[in-house]
Design a protein around this nucleic acid. Sequence first.
DNA 1: CTGAAAGCGCTTACAG
DNA 2: CTGAAAGCGCTTACAG
Lengths: 339, 339
Amino acid sequence: MAVTLKDIAEEAGVSVMTVSNVVNGKTARVSQATIDRVQGIVAARGYVANASARSLAASRSRTVGVLVPVAEGDMLTMSPHHVAVIGGIERQLRQAGYHVLLRGITEPAEVGQAVQEWGLDGAVLLGFLDAEIDALPAHGVPLLAVDSYSLNPRATGVRSDDVGGGRLAAQHLLEHGHRRLLFAGPAFGASGVVRRRHDGFTAAVAEVPDATAETVAVNTTYEDGLELGRSLRSRFPDVTGAFATADVLAVGIMAGLRDGGASVPEDVSVVGFDNLDLGLYVRPRLTTVAQDLGEKVAVAARMLLGEIDGTEAAGEVELPVRLEVRESVAAAPTPPPRG
Amino acid sequence: MAVTLKDIAEEAGVSVMTVSNVVNGKTARVSQATIDRVQGIVAARGYVANASARSLAASRSRTVGVLVPVAEGDMLTMSPHHVAVIGGIERQLRQAGYHVLLRGITEPAEVGQAVQEWGLDGAVLLGFLDAEIDALPAHGVPLLAVDSYSLNPRATGVRSDDVGGGRLAAQHLLEHGHRRLLFAGPAFGASGVVRRRHDGFTAAVAEVPDATAETVAVNTTYEDGLELGRSLRSRFPDVTGAFATADVLAVGIMAGLRDGGASVPEDVSVVGFDNLDLGLYVRPRLTTVAQDLGEKVAVAARMLLGEIDGTEAAGEVELPVRLEVRESVAAAPTPPPRG
DNA sequence: CTGAAAGCGCTTACAG
DNA sequence: CTGAAAGCGCTTACAG
């Protein structure tokens, strides 16, 4: 069996609770001699506190759930973006002495179950729809929703400046002389993120007299991008600049355009969103709206931890974005003289 | 406060342990009437068992650790391959009623600590060096090492047929007439996986009379591949076919070759390993050695669960690989006449 | 500076 | 078919 507090206490000739105090650093009123002796034994015996007993007694688990909806096939829906977020969150929480429970969620009610079952001190919600988060009842623990525009006051939202990102993409294309633009992204009934990007994009377009933008709904996959790219010139003959709400989509569009005989960026310029490594792997390298993921994760973890220990109130945080200029945007081609 | 077993017991007018039995499905000797009444109350009150109390009392946690070494920067080292494995493992374990603790490991000793601290029923080791797993002491719980050739008898290994994968890559190039081949991958002192792929590759080359293979050590990143690709033709002027031990590397090499004025596959053919989506996003699409990741994960989860409940013994499982033929390999160019 | 007692919410033999 | 008792390994007030 593993070494327990009692074993240490007996060997040190002190009470269990003194050992507990030393182990937990509550040494304000413990003599230095006792501290040294207990710590020596703890190290020698390789004592590790039992997390279950600790949670049960203290009614705090020092555990945070990272909750991710599962898609069809019951698999976690983990985009490269999610992965980076999870990695960053795990690191920050670990350094703060917290543990991470990773769990796929089949239906929203399971969020509350997970919190109860594990006595989670908090939870990070990754990839949920705004409406799902809106509908979440209060569970008494801090909830942090990443990339959500939910209005649920119980959940803190951490996200990037999506409106600004949309603007940036449009402005970049406009500055290069493009006047017929295309916004490509998933239908945004359910996604506040996409809607904000669309808002920013169209707002910037509206500021330039003869510029117009069309919108096309397309799933966020390479294949859907490919298909759109292939038919883009026939479906949108005037368009010379396209903005896709995700890098995979943008990369697919570029490949499709080329398949269809158009060259990128000479005939059609493309801007993505996310700044995935992928954008560096393709030619031309993808110009894209970049979020500072490291900072986003750091802020998210800090907020959650702050809420858990009560030093921070739920709130909304929006992080800045910037344009990562690479090679997929060029000056608009001069149209052939008409008539 | 949350509803407890005691609350249910009082409302149902039975003992706590009868409720416990019903909740845990040990209903062999409980009357149907009691079962129905208890289950009704459980559902109505939204009872969820407290995992900490349960672990503590039963000395089994129904929790499995997914342990991943952290790189510099203290971040989880999560390749797309790891992500897919984690996603699959989480799903299988969840469906089996287990939970997943995700934890970054700074030094091997933390593996044992994590097991003890949480009373983990088992652990999945992802991305560890063979030597690190060799050195792991027995922790009394099943350990499953993914993609490891560790000799540690306490750890079950699940991996792909790396020797066969190396052979497949070489044979494919040889069949297309290539006789001067290059093996590009990380120095394999520490990696049994890479060494096996190299073994298979060189063995296949050795079977063809006038074929030869050179080996170059390069880190598994796009950038390192790019650099290698750019200098490939000057460093290895005779080479017409290259095998990279990872798709990102292969994609980098292809881009570098093109930067250096060579065309792929006309001048140099390239084969990767992993079958990441990335290989479909680049042109030419990457021919690569594919592992059946879904099957690998399924087997891994089944083994681990089997070992936990004692129906399975530790062992080694090797899964087949196949070649995913796409566009990055062509017939060897006929060399210009010499002299 | 230190400790005895109660209790967190469950499960495990055991008894009837 | 059902239950009373003990105990898992800790922490939390509280007392001295």
